[in-house]
Design a protein around this nucleic acid. Structure first.
Length: 497
RNA sequence: CGCGGGGUGGAGCAGCCUGGUAGCUCGCGAGGCUCAUAACCUUGAGGUCGGCCGUUCAAAUCGGUCCCCCGCAACCA
């Protein structure tokens, strides 16, 4: 049986349209999924949408729609975006689907039955017009931070989940599993949080009367499930929890959860404890990546500086966007997005290094051998090819495996670009135009043959990162004859102003 | 003294754990080559490694202290 690999994005909250942050997480997950498939793993790649909660209800009311009608209208926009980005997900889960609702209700019932839930009083500062609870620190001077009207103390009866019961277990687990939470700075953040605070019990319900848009508690018609409790379970319901034991055993817990850093705590504190409570292992890895900033500010809808990923694709193509997002900034750190930076990457890495290497190689093969691909004779290769090209060709897959294990997309890509650089240098060192003049056909044949082999390796290893480009290169090379087309990445010449 | 991350040539980063010629990418200067998308290859200029004090034969790297920037500080997705 093949090894299995499960990768998830968060389920995106659909009170808005997909933006570059959503695309970033999803592209990263897609890259990992494609890579593992290529290496022979059985892969399950899950994405989806989070459709319950206060904000959805409000957004729907503003549009005069029922919540379900509202989300039904948004979901296609996400699916279209992922289709356009050629995201190779295996499953798209919606929290309004029966399979998910059943899983959540089973989960809740089990917790209740084993005594992990209790009915208590939720007390909080509530802003009635905004319909939002605030903490004491947030509501400075008893005022709502949003609308600046005064908040009221509200008490309501709700169900609670006793997190603190599992706190010591979680702390120990994180300490004993250094790779569980990444990057390390985030891991430290969670550790210090757990060491310095006693976990409060998590309020996992909302009164149906105040907030109706959620999954009903199976044991209380007066309550619906708190959205986060509902949402996290999606990672299990997509595996057929609790019924499909075969699928569950196959893919759990060999999972990597990807997300932006703002939802780290829910995934590293609530989620492992929830799993522990129902007798499942924590996920293998939880990775929180950074935010993209436009100019100086964090990208957000309210600031109106959102970069629409679909517009970018129209302008530059899928692969260029994928390459830029994965190559420009270490996964885990914040980055600054700008078109200038993207164009720089395009011209430098893609046009000059990769595109030009492919094009000049194909041109030479066309000129010297009428596009026929000569046979490679490894034993008679020159010193440079043996020392600089062959070892790289051999090592790249392993280097990429290691790098992607750490979600280090940059190092993985750099290993490919190391080969591209060596090949460009090889052409310079070998001076094939001289070989041609001197009629050294054998040498010339081997020279072209090894370069084409290099292109094959590049195309193969680039596939998870730039699927379209990889197929284009493969198609250009063919098996016996090359088919030189247009340059892969025509240089972008910026207009003078 | 809440916890954590960071301040390295014009820009963005690596190096720091395991002290000993400060490295990479981009940009800029010069040269080479012509198969190629003014691309490619070689080479040069440019750094008090945030400030100060200390340990040491020797500190970007260890210790102390100060300054500045950025995260986290929970039930809001």
């Amino acid at each position: 049986m093949n090894k299995s690999f499960y990768v998830t994005t968060p389920i995106y909250y659909v009170n808005g349209l997909p933006h570059i942050g959503h695309a970033y997480t999803t592209i990263a997950a897609d890259c990992l999924a494609r890579h593992k498939r290529q290496r022979g793993f059985d892969v399950y790649f899950l994405t989806g949408t989070d459709e319950h909660g206060q904000k959805i209800l409000k957004a729907a009311e503003e549009k005069g729609l029922t919540p379900l009608a509202f989300v039904d209208q948004i979901i296609p926009r996400f699916k279209e975006a992922w289709k356009k980005l050629e995201i190779s997900y295996d499953d798209f889960i919606r929290t309004t689907e029966p399979r998910h609702i059943q899983a959540v209700q089973y989960f809740l019932q089990k917790l209740l039955d084993q005594g992990d839930l209790y009915l208590g009083q939720y007390k909080g500062l509530y802003c009635v017009p905004c319909e939002v609870f605030w903490t004491e620190k947030q509501a400075v001077g008893g005022l709502c931070p949003d609308c600046h009207r005064s908040v009221e103390v509200i008490k309501e009866s709700n169900y609670f989940f006793q997190l603190s019961k599992y706190q010591d277990w979680l702390l120990k687990y994180i300490e004993e599993h250094p790779d569980f939470i990444a990057p390390e700075s985030r891991r430290n953040e969670v550790l210090s949080f757990l060491k310095e605070n006693k976990l409060e019990d998590l309020c996992i319900s909302r009164p149906q009367a105040r907030m109706s848009w959620g999954i009903p508690l199976p044991f209380s018609p007066d309550h619906v499930t708190y959205v986060w409790f509902d949402a996290l379970i999606n990672y299990l319901s997509a595996l057929g929890f609790p019924k499909d034991e075969e699928k569950l055993n196959k893919f759990w817990p060999s999972v990597v959860h990807l997300m932006a850093k703002d939802i780290l705590r829910q995934h590293t504190v609530f989620w492992p404890i929830m799993l522990k409570a129902v007798g499942l292992n924590p996920p293998n890895k939880i990775f929180a990546h950074g935010w993209w900033q436009v100019g100086e500010e964090k990208m957000s809808k309210s600031r109106g500086n959102v970069v629409n990923p679909l517009d970018l694709i129209d302008e530059f193509g899928i692969d260029v966007c994928r390459y830029f997002l994965l190559r420009e900034v270490p996964f885990g750190l914040d980055g600054v997005f700008s078109k200038d930076a993207l164009i720089k990457r395009f011209n430098g890495d893609l046009a000059n290094d990769l595109g030009n290497l492919v094009y000049r190689t194909l041109t030479m093969d066309e000129k010297y051998f009428d596009s026929k691909i000569p046979l490679l004779h490894e034993e008679s290769l020159d010193a440079f090819a043996r020392q600089e090209l062959l070892p790289k060709i051999k090592n790249i897959p392993c280097k990429i495996d290691e790098a992607l294990e750490r979600l280090d997309f940059i190092t993985a890509l750099e290993s490919i670009w190391g080969l591209i650089g060596a090949a460009n240098k090889y052409i310079e060192v070998t001076k094939p135009w001289n070989l041609k003049k001197e009629n050294k056909i054998k040498e010339l044949e081997n020279f072209i043959a090894i370069l084409i082999e290099v292109l094959r390796v590049i195309a193969r290893e680039l596939l998870p990162f730039m699927p379209q480009t990889a197929s284009k290169i493969t198609a250009q090379i063919g098996s016996e004859h090359v088919k030189k087309g247009d340059p892969l990445f025509p240089r972008i010449v910026e207009e003078k102003k």
